[in-house]
Design a protein around this nucleic acid. Sequence first.
DNA 1: CCCCCTTATGTTAGCGCTGTCCATTTCCGC
DNA 2: GCGGAAATGGACAGCGCTAACATAAGGGGG
Lengths: 349, 349
Amino acid sequence: MPDHPSSDAKATHAEVELSAVRLQEVAEAAGVSTITVSRCINNPARVSEKTREHVLKIANRMGYIPNRLASSLASARSMVIGVVVPTIANPIHGMVLQGVADILEPAGYQVLLGNSHFSKRSEFELVRTFLGHRVDGILLTGRDHSEECLDLLARSRTPMVEMFDHNPEPPDMAVGSSNFDAGASLGQYLIARGRRYFAYVGHTGLDDSRMIARLQGLTKVCEAAGLAPPRHYEIASDPGTGTGGEVVGTILREVPEIDAVVFAGHQVAVSAIRYSVDVGIAVPQRLAIAGFGDSPIAKWITPSLTTVRFPVRENGIEAGKLMLGRLQGKPCKQRSIRLGFEILGRDSA
Amino acid sequence: MPDHPSSDAKATHAEVELSAVRLQEVAEAAGVSTITVSRCINNPARVSEKTREHVLKIANRMGYIPNRLASSLASARSMVIGVVVPTIANPIHGMVLQGVADILEPAGYQVLLGNSHFSKRSEFELVRTFLGHRVDGILLTGRDHSEECLDLLARSRTPMVEMFDHNPEPPDMAVGSSNFDAGASLGQYLIARGRRYFAYVGHTGLDDSRMIARLQGLTKVCEAAGLAPPRHYEIASDPGTGTGGEVVGTILREVPEIDAVVFAGHQVAVSAIRYSVDVGIAVPQRLAIAGFGDSPIAKWITPSLTTVRFPVRENGIEAGKLMLGRLQGKPCKQRSIRLGFEILGRDSA
DNA sequence: CCCCCTTATGTTAGCGCTGTCCATTTCCGC
DNA sequence: GCGGAAATGGACAGCGCTAACATAAGGGGG
């Protein structure tokens, strides 16, 4: 052991974090104080051009990478945004995330990602973790959150945007299309084309309020048209997998008068079309099939799928913009942005 | 202004970070030192059970959320892993990421996400940013990185895993299937089924070495079989969009003797099938069509697509495990994990 | 009964950076 | 030439936490 008791700890640390250039080293090399180097990087306007160029050149030459942990700790801004999606394996959320990143990354923010697996409990845990990382903002998917989660968010005063669902009175901010309206519109479209007996197929075990809102919208227009409410079925599969076929058989066996099946997702709807064609159910003559969400396969299958297109990437972009506006202290025009949707009337209904 | 000059800064900070409970407050409330509280959370074994329970109960009641910025700064471990993907909008990378997260999140690590948009320059910038955040490890997609990027990684001694491509001699660690071998295998499959004149369709502007490796593998088996090397075409579209049709027309017009087209992606291959059927090109009789990667639509289109399936999620899982092993200091069995692939011989070739 | 070893907790000194306040310099009009 | 405003740079303290060392307390064998 060396006989420099005061530098022991430092020496040990230096071994761990080998050769990391610190602000102070740059300052010494440039012959200025540390705060000046800091300002050259974070607040260039407060430093003369000459000094700035000189310092930045040296910092660059030394391969200096500012330690954002220290910076964040001292300034209480982390330049990190936490994003919770149900599952990143679903391309939809991938595209939302792409929109988010396309706005946030150029502004210098990084995305900290978490998968809730459609569980409010996991969402809460992720929010807790994100707050531990002192993220500057949090984006959540949907408008259905646990009480304690919202409470935590409110108490921590962390900006939050709900994405991918419409919420006229969000806890903080929100972006998305109305799933209720989408369900209603699709229902109207089908009713206008002569459908009278509906079934709606959701997914068990996915605590997804958007799929429920779609059913509620559909139910409303059924009632308004004096029709029976849609029969509600659930299948135990991921929205991403193609196992929507068998349920069609079940439905027609149990309630033969049903002439339209609306699926909560598009992949399952496509697999239902595939199944129906295979077993000789005429689509759309005998049975209309429709879904929510679009994909190449929905367009290319025969008959092509009548479905609802949501502006997916826009969700992410608008959410990112909303967050950015808040973080930059701009006056917020509106807390809730309502996005539209489009009924893609194709061959299956 | 209050007359406590020494507490001015603190007061201002407190206003910003309203009501954040600190370690010290918990310690005072529990009647122990700060380090004891810290240990209760991070190193429970080093504290008696009685103390731990008592402290954790109080921490919980006070709603204490440890500040990981401070923790990371002091301990030089951030519990964050940086992941770079070309674009998260591509479901493939979404699934890889899901695999990564499924391993890393339960172990207490968070994923910091970055999109390189297939640009090595962006990848480098992201790595720089990640290092600024002092991530504990970095996952990159593919094995094609800029010199300065690898240099930075090596100098910073940050663990790194290359995902989604096979690299027998990685800079640090690697996981993936050999794209060269996949190209070769698909070529052999097609040659065995009587194909003699190949075209390969890649994507312009996507600096994606995996697609090139596939072509090289295909080229090798062509040469080995005494055939002409594949004619190389490129289309200017995302792999995700379905614009592979027109190129088939071009190919057959320019080189009518071509009897097999291999696409670098599956979406474009599917759209090529769709196009061919529409314009009356007999698939596979007149023209074999094959691709890389699988999806429901590849299976369901008529004729269904002959393609190569890669173990996508496994890539993420194995990459996560490799990283975790390194971070936990376990002896590393192998630095490079070779994953397989599967030729899905279907109707289109 | 003392010593050494193990276990439990405390003390100290930072981790690398930035906010605040203050000192100095520069520049201008009168 | 002088007072004062504006521009520029610096000293200091502290963000909230943990590594390392120090100390205290218990426990068993010689």
